[in-house]
């Protein structure tokens, strides 16, 4: 029996699923990375993911085009991020409280609008999804083909975005300014860096990443929206961001760890083993806590994270 369990856990199917499931977490984690590198604690990732998932279905429902749905999602999440940014940066709201407020707002609004548009509190009608991409050359490779040859386009988008995000953050002038803003806003200000612009930009860009992640949740696989579809992934993403040391690549690695545990959990449920389902389902949540507790001890967040900056004018 143990062999069977291990075989299931470490099968290619599990890894393939883990890569897929990592998409929303990793993108949201990078959203968190950008926001926090600029000094804004972003608990609101959850709400931004949820907004994206809903807007994607809404867009696809009304236009009939899945990719227009994705565009909708990116726009909506970026807008919710802009709202969050307005409250935290301009109105100096406590970041954590405002983030939780945004999450509750997003949950209420999406659930309410779902009923207004479709009359159901459970799930939306099915809409056009994004489907899967078949890449001929890669698909024929032995193991890689199974993992990446026939995946959702979101998987490739994720890899591209995360590499792009990493370059932006560590190799460009803008990235240097973002990092400096989160570490030492006074220093950045005294060098003539536009702090407020940088903060708003980072938060909104982070929201856009969450929009992609959210769109994947609804259009990447299931092709419908259901109430509270993000189900805590935004919080996991924040943990992944911390575990990944505020680096998009690290965040990707940590997200993969979470998504792998999720994939294992799902596949174990399909097996007839002694552990009850409810306990198996706890695995990703417990893992998040364990990793967070282990990671934070040596994590070093941006020095001015969570502070408000007022130039005294």
């Amino acid at each position: 029996m143990w062999l069977e369990i291990l075989g299931t856990i470490f099968s290619l199917n599990t890894f393939e699923a883990a890569i897929r499931l990592a998409v929303p977490i990793a993108l949201a984690a990078m959203g968190g990375t950008f926001s926090e590198r600029a000094g804004i604690i972003n608990i609101g990732l959850e709400g931004m993911l949820l907004t994206g998932a809903f807007a994607a279905v809404l867009g696809s429902y009304f236009t009939g085009s899945a990719w227009l749905g994705v565009a909708f999602a990116v726009l909506a999440s970026a807008m919710s991020a802009a709202l969050f940014g307005y409250f935290t940066i301009e109105l100096k709201a406590n970041h954590v409280v405002a983030g939780v407020g945004l999450n509750i707002l997003a949950l209420g609004l999406t659930t309410w609008l779902m009923q207004v548009f479709w009359g159901s509190r459970g799930t939306s009608p099915a809409v056009t999804g994004v489907g899967r991409l078949h890449i001929p050359f890669i698909a024929e490779l032995p193991i890689i083909g199974r993992l990446l040859g026939r995946q959702s386009p979101f998987v490739y988008i994720m890899f591209i975005l995360i590499i792009g995000g990493w370059v932006l953050l560590f190799k460009t002038p803008l990235g240097l300014r973002i990092r400096m803003t989160g570490e030492h806003p006074e220093a950045a200000d005294s060098l003539g860096i536009k702090i407020r612009f940088i903060k708003h930009f980072s938060v909104i860009l982070g929201g856009a990443f969450c929009g992609f992640g959210g769109a994947y949740l609804s259009l990447g696989n299931l092709n419908w929206f259901s109430m509270n579809m993000s189900a805590g992934r935004g919080y996991m993403a924040l943990a992944a961001n911390i575990f990944g040391q505020w680096n998009p690549l690290g965040g990707l690695g940590a997200s993969f760890l979470f998504s792998f545990s999720d994939a294992v959990q799902m596949r174990l449920q399909g097996l007839d083993i002694a552990l009850p389902h409810n306990i198996i389902q706890m695995i990703p949540f417990v893992l998040t806590i364990v990793i967070l507790a282990g990671a934070v001890v040596k994590a070093r967040p941006p020095a001015a994270l969570g502070n408000h900056y007022s130039p005294g004018k």
Binding site: F87, E90, L91, K92, A93, N94, V97, A98, V100, G101, L102, N103, I104, L105, A106, L107, G108, L109, T111, W112, Q115, V116, R121
Partner: peptide
């Protein structure tokens, strides 16, 4: 009117109260 509107109101209340700048 779906009751979830009250959740929206709650979220907004948190945001508004949290923002001294308002």
């Amino acid at each position: 009117i779906p009751n979830d509107l009250m959740t929206v109101v709650q979220g907004l209340v948190i945001l508004f109260v949290a923002a001294p700048g308002l």
